[in-house]
Write a protein that binds this DNA or RNA. Structure first.
Lengths: 219, 219
DNA sequence: ACTTACCGGAGACGTCTTCTCCGCTTCGTT
DNA sequence: AACGAAGCGGAGAAGACGTCTCCGGTAAGT
């Protein structure tokens, strides 16, 4: 951020790349609770090296997850752009479920386990497109009239829970329940409990602990 | 365990009860990661008192959760005893989802977050009745032929995830998705991914960390 | 061959939790 | 009412774990 000045030495560039890849793997497997030592070790490097490249764990995690979050944004936008409302909705649910199932760190960020503020930011970006997606699907009769936009995120989260239960083994099991969830949105018995309003959803999700958020304040 | 010998003093009895109730509340709200200090404080007592009554946190948690687990067993047995296979299955799903949604500590134990061995024990006790429940429902045509007994636990877990997302606010939201899940078991599009075998389920769930288990070994 | 960027990992430091210890309080019995 | 014993409280010991620093050593590049 300060000034790029001189280019990095060749080995430094290589190590940085190793670090990023290791972080991707480790955070995807074990979530953000994995330590810097873990990441550095996985990269075959010392902790010191990790800290020369990234000021703290939060910064490293953000560097990794920012692109994943960007892909999620791409996913909604593509879904909204899809001329078939139902196909668009399905692609979003399937796409995000797939991403999150494979990446525990992403799952944690999107659920606001560590940093409520960041999660809210993501949800803000998503809520508009999501609302449009659902409204269009309802107008086309592809989805029950009582479905709300907040249902989508919850459905995706439920699907990803399967990955939490099974761990790395059988990483595709969530797909078994995908048709079930999709079918539940289009037909079947109506729910007797009203959906969560966007405001309520945001508020209730923010209750979580914020360890990493606190951490980053120190820098 | 040694010998009950003399009865407790009156205040000791009262404090023990306060402690148990506080533990129930705290563990249900925040899960087993809550500390003994938290529990003691909630009871309006000092930590020392908590440790005189219970050797360690694990013992206290077990005392609380044992009865909850017992109620879960009762729930399966009642479900199997139900002459209507479908009604039995529904009562089990709804009953356990309700219990777990209200109690994060129970949710953690049943998902094996802390102690894989204990979780396996519970699943062993449940798997027989569950299999019978599903087989009967299939025979009666109340459930799709490709549904497996392992699906039930996963469906319940998915429902409870809703409580994890929303926290204490809107504690009934899971019910909104109950009809969806139940409908998914009886009809609708067939899943393309095969169910998890009981063995795989057990194995994959055991991968989790086991902090409290390690703790109890020291005693 | 020599300078300088970079590496590594032991350990300082901070935080959090479990569990102990002992002076003080309260019970209940005489 | 007064005394011994059971029970209480909470400061702090002990230990686990993670972050981040520091500096002697290594190797890149000219």
């Amino acid at each position: 951020m300060t000034e790029a000045s001189r280019p990095l030495r060749k080995d430094a560039v290589r190590n940085r790349a190793l670090l990023v890849q290791a972080a991707r793997d480790v955070f995807a497997e074990r979530g953000l609770e994995a330590s810097m030592d873990d990441v550095a070790h996985r990269a075959g490097l010392g902790v010191g090296t990790a800290y020369r490249h990234f000021a703290n764990k939060y910064e490293l995690a953000l560097a990794i997850l920012a692109e994943a979050i960007e892909r999620v944004y791409q996913l909604v936008d593509d879904a909204v752009a899809n001329p078939d409302p139902w196909a668009g909705l399905v692609s979003f649910v399937e796409g995000t479920a797939e991403m999150q199932s494979a990446d525990r760190g992403l799952r944690e960020v999107l659920m606001g386990v560590h940093d409520a503020e960041q999660m809210e930011q993501v949800h803000d970006r998503l809520s508009g497109p999501l609302r449009e997606l659902v409204d269009r699907a309802k107008a086309a009769g592809a989805v029950r009239a009582d479905v709300e936009s907040t249902d989508i995120g919850i459905v995706v989260t439920m699907l990803c829970t399967v990955a939490d239960v099974t761990g790395d083994a059988s990483s595709d099991l969530w797909r078994r329940y995908l048709p079930m969830m999709l079918d539940g949105l289009r037909q079947g018995a109506e729910p007797s409990v009203p959906a969560l309003s966007e405001d309520m959803l945001r508020k209730s999700m923010s209750t979580h602990k914020q360890r990493l958020a606190r951490l980053s304040q120190r820098g």
